[in-house]
Amino acid sequence: MYDIIIIGGGIAGLTSALYASRAGKSVLVLEEASYGGAIINTLDIANYPGISHISGYELATNLYEQVKELKVSIVNEKALKIKNMRNKKQVITKNNVYEGKAIILATGRNNRKLGLLHEDELIGKGLSYCATCDGAFYRGKVVSVVGGGNTALEDALYLSTIAKEVYLIHRRDTFRGDDITINLLKKKDNVHFIFNSTISKFKITDHRLSGIVIKNSQEETILVDALFVAIGREPKNEIVKNLVKLDDNGYIIINQKCHTNIKGIFAAGDNCRKSLYQLVTATSDGAIAAEEAVLYLNKKKG
């Protein structure tokens, strides 16, 4: 039996592991893919206090190595179910059942999908959720971005320096982003705004995305080489939706001490409801959740 089982090996989860292990607790981290979480897609982090520039990969790897030194068990298995029992918690994966006294949920978020037919099979074939990752493959091409927040605006701005034409499609008539970015975009000759519109269908040629069907009062097809989807993210709380209290958008409701509504289950990072989703708040949550889990265990021991 572990003292603390942490679900998710992103920045919040690994920070929890760091704090919990340094407090003398036995810790298991369950990570479905690879450590690091969402930050590994960031090429340059410039707002982490004390570090002028670092790549997401490098920061995540540094933290991973730091945690590894502490003899934390990090296992690459996907948590499928969590059972809250009277004196312990169980986490069930495909091949194992792990037992712990406390749990920290740090599962993070996924990119929100459009939910259109053929969406998954077009990933890497014209469809992308990460402009900074895949934008460079579309030099001189015609691309589109869907979304109306800062990510969509920044994606469009970045792509305008690479692609020939950029169509920015948004379902409303105003953006929810920084004025600075909006004004920069408006000055770009190769960025075209399409407001009050949604994408209803993909046009596929030779198994690749070749166009998008735009729907407003009528339907029109725009031929594009790529579509970058930037319509937000959604928390990965599927396995805990019947266990802890979530808000209407599916985020875990935590108090200032990262407690969920269930005793012994804490949450940290992007899967929680909070006002700012940043590295600094992920590390902060991670540390607080770990400290609170440690307090909980020490109290329990009496």
Binding site: A33, S34, N76, K94, G124, K125, D134, F137, Y138, R208
Partner: peptide, 28 residues
């Protein structure tokens, strides 16, 4: 090979593309 997103893994069988996967995947 029409690479538009990386990481992209292509499995070749007898020199011909058999399957491809895009993005970070787990060992399983």
């Amino acid at each position: 090979y029409g690479i538009y997103s990386i990481p992209c893994l292509i499995l070749f069988k007898n020199g011909l593309e058999e399957k491809r996967v895009v993005g970070l995947k787990s060992k399983d």
